[in-house]
Computed example of a mutant assay.
Amino acid sequence: MGLERRSTGLCFGRLFAVNEAGEREPHWQPEYWKLELQLVFAEDPAWADLDRIGFQCTGFDYNEIGEPRIASLAEIRRVIESYPQLAAMRRAQPIRSDLALDRAD
């Protein structure tokens, strides 16, 4: 009989609007795509209370590439580091990962 290996998953998702060049109809809408990264980690006491954190959303970020984007990423890192469970996961190596890109509209 084999041992059951328990794991914990962490998922990140982003929605992108893609603008097509050319003529646009009066009620034109961009194409929406969802990028999702799922990381799976072996169980560890460091993130035992992960469910207590609940859903976290970093919101929307429209900052341009360069210093404004660097500042936004630093703020996201500060939020992650404020949760001991997420900080421990950030330093851990996942046992499995999955990346998906799907049309969202």
Rank of each mutant, 00 (worst) to 15 (best):
M1W: 05
G2Y: 06
G2K: 12
L3Y: 03
L3W: 02
E4Q: 12
E4T: 11
R5S: 08
R6N: 07
S7A: 15
S7H: 09
G9N: 09
G9K: 12
G9H: 05
L10Q: 07
C11Q: 14
G13Y: 05
R14Q: 11
L15V: 11
L15Y: 07
A17F: 03
V18T: 10
V18I: 15
V18W: 00
N19D: 14
N19G: 10
N19F: 09
E20L: 13
E20T: 12
G22D: 05
E23C: 05
P26M: 02
H27T: 10
W28C: 01
Q29L: 13
P30H: 02
P30D: 05
E31I: 06
E31K: 12
Y32P: 02
Y32K: 10
K34I: 07
L35H: 10
L35R: 06
E36M: 09
E36C: 12
Q38I: 00
L39E: 04
V40L: 10
F41E: 00
A42N: 07
A42G: 14
E43K: 09
E43G: 08
E43L: 09
D44E: 01
D44W: 03
D44C: 08
A46C: 06
W47Y: 14
W47E: 03
L50M: 08
D51I: 00
R52Y: 00
R52W: 02
I53R: 08
Q56A: 06
Q56R: 13
C57R: 10
C57S: 15
G59L: 05
G59C: 03
Y62P: 00
Y62C: 07
Y62N: 13
E64Q: 13
E64H: 11
I65E: 14
G66N: 06
E67C: 02
E67G: 06
P68E: 04
R69V: 00
R69W: 02
R69H: 07
I70C: 07
S72F: 04
S72P: 04
R78C: 01
V79D: 09
I80L: 14
I80T: 08
I80G: 03
I80W: 01
S82P: 03
S82Q: 05
Y83P: 05
Y83D: 05
P84K: 06
P84G: 10
Q85Y: 04
Q85W: 00
L86T: 06
L86G: 03
L86K: 04
M89L: 15
R91Q: 14
R91M: 03
P94A: 10
R96N: 13
S97K: 02
D98R: 14
L99P: 04
A100R: 15
L101H: 04
R103D: 01
D105H: 06
D105E: 07
